[in-house]
């Protein structure tokens, strides 16, 4: 059982050997010995990789651990006993933090949610039209829309703000919902069109023969078949808009209407003298919608961003 052959080139063989040894070790309940045994099976390269990964993982998690620890302490514990664990645990920090942050969280959910729904509806409709209809000027219009991918937000933010001012919409939810709906459509349209284009023509021919109208075949054939891509668009848009900072900062001044990303940064000035604990608890609470979203939508998120980026 000499495992001194360090070359990675023999990976396949090494895996097999490790597997056999583990089977053999199954009879021994002592997990420590088993772990030690397992380690001894690893080549030095593997051990090095494990070590580096564990160190990187630890450093990555330091801020999160710090955040959780602070969120459970009061100011006395933080300033007096910086390095000790929270004692007693100040769970009431979360109650205090939620008092200040529940409204911005609702604002965020409302604005992100409604703009995402609008984006999905509009982009799937027009994606369908661009993929399956023929009409004069189609390619010109489509190219015109795709050209918007080249326009960075930094160019439009000030003129868009002035536009919102002129429309009298600043400090309203519309100031967030309308531009987000509009801006998200470009990428969503791109994904939807290319997906709809892959659907076989026969489905739609069959529907037409059965007397389905254009809207019926959209709603009853195209949409159900494209559910995965629509979910992808929705997840990407939700995450993107929830994390938006600069635009809400510019167009929303009322704390009542502010979204959570900006409200978190105004925590300090709003309350005046602050306790760190509730503030940190607020940060954690603000993550809950994303935790919920990512717990089922991570796959969609990554796929959406990759597809959007690669196609653009």
């Amino acid at each position: 059982m000499v495992q001194a052959r360090g070359g990675e080139g023999t990976g396949q063989a090494a895996t097999v050997v490790t597997g056999e040894t583990l089977d053999g070790a199954g009879g021994r309940p002592d997990s420590v010995t088993r772990f030690a045994h397992m380690l001894s099976q690893l080549s030095s390269g593997q051990i090095l990789m494990y070590a580096i990964l564990i160190v990187l993982l630890f450093i990555t998690f330091v801020p999160i651990i710090y955040l959780v620890a602070l969120s459970l302490k009061d100011n006395g514990q933080i300033y007096g006993r910086f390095w000790s664990m929270p004692n007693p645990y100040r769970w009431e920090n979360f109650a205090l933090g939620s008092l200040a942050i529940w409204r911005p969280i609702l604002n965020s959910i409302l604005t992100s949610g409604s703009s995402t729904v609008a984006t999905v509806v509009l982009a799937s409709l027009s994606g369908y039209v661009f993929a399956r209809h023929r009409f004069p000027g189609k390619e010109v219009i489509y190219t015109g829309i795709l050209a918007l991918l080249m326009i960075p937000p930094i160019l439009t933010i000030i003129p868009a703000y002035v536009l919102i001012l002129n429309m009298g919409l600043e400090n309203t939810y519309w100031a967030l919902i309308l531009p987000w709906t509009s801006g998200g459509q470009v990428f969503a349209l791109l994904l939807c069109r290319s997906f709809f284009a892959t659907l076989p023509e026969e489905f739609f021919d069959a529907a037409r023969i059965d007397g389905a109208s254009e809207l019926q075949s959209f709603a009853q054939i195209a949409v159900p078949l494209s559910a995965p891509i629509l979910v992808t668009v929705a997840v990407v848009r939700l995450v993107t808009t929830y994390n938006q900072f600069m635009w809400p900062l510019v167009v929303i001044s009322s704390p009542k209407r502010q979204v959570v990303a900006v409200a978190l940064t105004q925590f300090t000035s709003e309350i005046g003298v602050t306790d760190l604990g509730p503030q940190m608890a607020g940060y954690i609470l603000a993550s809950i919608p994303l935790i919920v979203l990512f717990s089922f939508g991570m796959r969609h998120y990554v796929r959406g961003l990759t597809a959007g980026g690669l196609k653009a």
Binding site: L125, S126, L163, L178, S182, G183, Q185
Partner: peptide
């Protein structure tokens, strides 16, 4: 093709207002 135009009209209206106009305005 009026139905096609009608269906993409909301998309186009939004894009012209909130994306194209600010870009040129900027």
């Amino acid at each position: 093709a009026r139905l096609s135009y009608l269906l993409i009209l909301p998309t186009l209206a939004l894009l012209l207002t909130f994306n194209y106009y600010p870009a040129f305005s900027g």
